[in-house]
């Protein structure tokens, strides 16, 4: 992401929380940028040290976006909330693309080893199925769904999730455990 960001995101967030929908349109590209950056980081790290610190990255992104002095918790929470649902949308879209790529073309004629590899690769979460299950979860428990978005799609830590949702870290932890179990069950059915 370039260092210079012309739109003042604090302003945008404020406008958005004041109900001005157009402000969101200005935020979306920023989130896109952020995701692209995270993906790059992910791949680079994966090669180097196998760890991913998305939390730090999102924080960093936010701090970059907003002038440090003007961080207001309210806005920070908004930012995470927005970026979480946007990231979810975007990532699921990407997953669809990936799906298509895999299904199409050479996927059917994979040599045995590679086919095996693809299967084990699937211990990755099926994002499309997860997306669907997450919608169902939202009907049961909206807060849990929100937590999954923040934790999984936006990469926030327990504490940050708590902050963003104005609830205690203990609550986040319990809801998160429950949601993981529930979603896992849904996906393995």
């Amino acid at each position: 992401m370039s260092d210079k960001l012309s739109p003042d995101i604090t302003q945008l967030l404020q406008e958005w929380s004041d109900g001005r929908r157009e402000a969101l349109d200005a935020i979306v590209p920023l989130v896109y940028d952020e995701l692209r950056r995270q993906a790059h980081h992910y791949l680079r790290r994966e090669r180097q040290e196998h760890t991913l610190q998305t939390t730090a990255l999102v924080n960093e992104a936010y701090l970059k976006l907003v002038e440090q002095k003007r961080v207001v918790w309210q806005n920070r929470a908004h930012f995470f909330a927005i970026s979480a649902s946007l990231m979810r949308r975007i990532l699921v879209d990407y997953a669809k693309t990936k799906h298509r790529v895999k299904r199409g073309g050479e996927a059917e004629n994979l040599p045995l080893e590679e086919a095996f590899y693809v299967v084990t690769d699937e211990n990755n979460v099926d994002l499309l199925a997860l997306d669907k299950a997450l919608n169902e979860l939202a009907e049961m428990d909206e807060q849990q769904a929100k937590i999954v978005e923040l934790r999984y799609f936006s990469g926030l830590s327990i504490e940050e999730t708590a902050e963003a949702l104005h609830i205690s870290p203990a609550t986040v932890k319990r809801d998160w455990q429950m949601a993981k179990a529930w979603l896992h069950h849904q996906l393995s059915r």
Partner: peptide, 12 residues
């Protein structure tokens, strides 16, 4: 492990 890792290659 956050979702971005799964589709990072596609994004990139």
């Amino acid at each position: 492990n956050p979702a971005v890792g799964q589709v990072a290659d596609v994004i990139v």
